[in-house]
Structure formats: C-alpha cells, structure tokens
C-alpha cells in the first residue's frame, strides 16, 4: 500500500513540476527532495548529473545560440529537468516497482520483461567495456572510441529488435495475446 501511495504522489509531483514556472519553487522542491533522500543524496545526485549533463548542456547551448542568454529561462529549464530526474531516481530507489504494479498483471509482466532486459543489457555493456580495456594496449584514440561506440550501439539496437521479436513470439506462444 505504501508503494502505491508513494507512486500516486510521484505522479502528482511530475504533473506539478511540469506546470510550475517559478525558479524559487524548483529550488525549494530540490531542497525538499535532498532532505528526503538522506544518505542516498550523493549516489542519486551522481546518477542525476550523469543522466542530465549531456541533455541539459545541449539544450542550454542551443538556446543561448539561438535566443541569447536568458538567465531566468535557462535556470527554469535546467532546474525542472534536474528536479524531475532526481525525483525519479529517488523514487525508483525507494519504491518496489513490482509491488507498485501488482494490481495489474499486464503491467507486472511488462515490468518484469523490461527489468530483465535492462539487467541483460547492463551485463553486456560491462562486457563491452572490459573487452575494450582488455584489447587496449594504450589509451584508445578518438577514432577507436568512435568505432567502439558505433559497434556497441549497433549491437544494442540489433539485440533490442531481436529480443523484442523473440519475447513477443514467446508471449504469444504462452497465450499472452492473440492477433
């Protein structure tokens, strides 16, 4: 029950965060989230930073180049993204998603499938990094890093498509859906 109530609050907070336009409120909300995160603050903040750095950087730079430096708007956009990302990571850390979605078997199945794919891909990703490290006699150059990224991305896209069709066939085979 606790997970479902937290889930409800999370959804309301997401709606709220997309509607407010006050920098002060965003800062206040971030302070509140920081207090709620307690000892999880540093790991959640690290994850948030890694997740938003590129996106926020590109958006901010593009905005400055096109519209000039508007402190208010730039701060608003960045704070909104940081608040929502931080809140989402904290939510996932604190709430048992399987319990949250147990009211719907379809949502539970989808969650289990997604989760298993995330774990599988995480393992593949670690193997890719280790393989590159193992084969690198010296630090790889830009071209080599680019080649590595391209092949890893290609692998994950191909694997996703292949796994999706396999999972879809398996679900169909087990009577999950008919077409």
């Amino acid at each position: 029950m606790k997970d479902r109530i937290t889930g409800l609050f999370y959804i309301l907070a997401v709606i709220l965060l997309t509607t407010i336009h006050s920098i002060e409120l965003y800062i206040g909300f971030f302070v509140l989230l920081s207090v709620l995160s307690g000892k999880d603050f540093i790991p959640v903040m690290k994850k948030t930073f890694v997740a938003v750095a590129l996106f926020n950087g590109v958006i901010t730079l593009a905005y400055i180049l096109i519209k000039g430096f508007d402190y208010g708007y730039i701060a608003l956009i960045n704070l909104r993204v940081i608040d929502m990302t931080f809140m989402t990571f904290l939510f996932v850390r604190r709430v048992n998603l399987f319990r949250l979605f147990e009211f719907s078997s379809i949502l539970t199945y989808l969650l289990v499938i997604s989760y298993s794919q995330i774990l599988l891909f995480k393992r593949y990703y670690t193997e890719f990094i280790l393989a590159l490290k193992s084969r690198s006699i010296k630090t790889p150059g830009l071209a080599e890093r680019y080649g590595f990224l391209r092949s890893a991305t290609g692998f994950f896209i191909e694997k996703s498509v292949k796994n999706s069709s396999e999972i879809s066939l398996a679900m169909k085979s087990r009577g999950f859906f008919m077409d």
């Binding site: 593949y124 193997e127 890719f128 280790l130 393989a131 590159l132 193992s134 084969r135 690198s136 006699i137 010296k138 080599e144 080649g147 590595f148 391209r150 092949s151 890893a152 692998f155």
Partner: peptide, 30 residues
C-alpha cells in the same frame, strides 16, 4: 596487455572495427 590476452565468451563484445583486416590490425597498430 600484449602478453596476456582474453577471448571473451561473446565475440560481439570484442568487435568494433569496420573490417576484419582492421580488427586484426587493431592491437598491432597500437
């Protein structure tokens, strides 16, 4: 890294060059 080499179980994780020639030449070039 030149003396101790590892063949991973899944060769896909080790491949990142455009051609087979470049793949074999990768370490030699380094």
């Amino acid at each position: 890294r030149k003396e101790v080499v590892l063949l991973f179980q899944n060769p896909d994780t080790m491949i990142f060059n455009p051609t087979v020639f470049d793949e074999i030449a990768f370490g030699l070039r380094q």
